[in-house]
Write a protein that binds this DNA or RNA. Structure first.
Lengths: 227, 227
DNA sequence: CCGATATTATTCGAGACAGTACAAAAATCA
DNA sequence: TGATTTTTGTACTGTCTCGAATAATATCGG
């Protein structure tokens, strides 16, 4: 049974901000025993695990083994399992955003811009040593988002951020005359997001990249011919 | 850590077909102590739980409580947790198919047929006492499909079944002159499936029905205007 | 009525789980 | 050097987990 998170109780028993004070770049010399890990790479390893197995199927022992940190260090650095999941998700979003943001506004023609976005998305979704990792937003929507309001809020934000990026992309295309003014930019953006979602899901089911690319190309044919 | 299912070993230790012999309709009188449960409704309860919490976060105790069957009865009727999950998924697919199959081939005009499909999909995805249950195929793709080949095969089958249903729907529309011959039925089918997937995901994130309907309407505008 | 059969109910056990307590270790500051 | 601070490593707790073993119960065939 998934417990609803009782925010009041939980927060009362938790130290205020605590966990994971990342060292400022202008190193003011930390005091005690030095860390045996690099918080950033440890968070990356945790993200890998969560993306592969999901929240419930990932144990703290797994995370401990993958990060090389023992359990108390994990708590000290990132808080409990849920906090670590949230931080992992934020990290995922930051990476995905960084990989795509420039392309949405690039000078290239619409179709090329979109094609590059989908190529990067496929890279993200199909990567992974043990199998395709899919889209963390989509996976989180399917699992934790229903019962955990905070996580749900982040997922909704992730979904709408993508919608908006596509919207801006299509508005730009209309200004550049690549799409007629009559085209419904919002509807096209939702279709573009939907195409992202469908390839993320199919990637998880190990549908080969060639097929996913064919789906993307078909979608781009329809979207770029909108009137 | 999610264990890969070792089919050989597992199947070797398991009684041949065993579990869940559903009573034939022409009741030949069962022999021993009568069941205190109706297998079909118990399976429905199990499906509800799995849809809400996913495989990993649903315990046998939860299932036992929800079905009213104690653990040994669960095993006797459905096998272990994984088998129960698989049977639940098959049940879900059967129900979804039954709810939609007639509409795909109905005489109504294309847009109306599609609108009715999406209305039913939204009913399925938004229903649930404790929150929207989403699409079980999508949720399973996000979780178990990567590591479990059998489950993955069922998920792929579910995805392609929907693609094919939409394909047939669009072929019919072309025959009826509702779409030009030049329209790419396969691409449109994938877009239609993508729209199903995106509303399933957003439903899980508690996006309200009105917004989902707006997304559907926008998608139908584009799809039905294809040339 | 008695035996066979099939289900239920109780209980157990070995292991995994999340989270914490505590002492040892390694660095800085004085 | 010695005191302080922070992290590490080990061990522990109580709970939950799945699956199975056992015994009690209820129906049917004869």
């Amino acid at each position: 049974m998934v417990k609803e998170f009782n925010c009041e109780m939980v927060q009362k028993n938790r130290k205020p901000p605590s966990a994971a004070k990342i060292d400022a770049p202008g190193a003011p010399k930390r005091r005690g025993r030095p860390r045996a890990y690099v918080p950033d790479v440890a968070l990356g390893k945790a993200l890998d695990l969560f993306r592969r197995d999901g929240f419930a199927a990932t144990s703290l022992d797994d995370l401990s083994a993958a990060t090389g940190m023992n359990r108390p260090s994990l708590y000290g650095a990132f808080g409990d399992k849920r906090e670590l999941y949230i931080k992992s998700y934020q990290r995922y979003r930051d990476e995905a955003r960084a990989a795509m943001v420039d392309i949405f506004r690039a000078e290239a023609p619409l179709r090329e811009r979109l094609a590059r976005i989908y190529a990067i998305a496929l890279d993200i979704y199909l990567s992974g040593d043990t199998g395709p990792r899919g889209c963390f937003t989509v996976m989180t929507a399917g699992s934790e988002a229903v019962s955990d309001p905070d996580i749900r809020a982040m997922v909704v934000e992730g979904l709408t951020e993508l919608d908006k990026a596509f919207s801006i992309c299509f508005r730009l295309a209309k200004e550049r005359g690549e799409l007629p003014d009559s085209a419904d930019g919002t509807a096209l953006a939702h279709l573009a997001s939907a195409t992202i979602h469908t390839i993320a899901i199919r990637a998880r089911a190990r549908v080969p990249r060639k097929e996913l690319e064919a789906i993307v190309n078909g979608a781009l044919d329809v979207i770029c011919a909108a009137r």
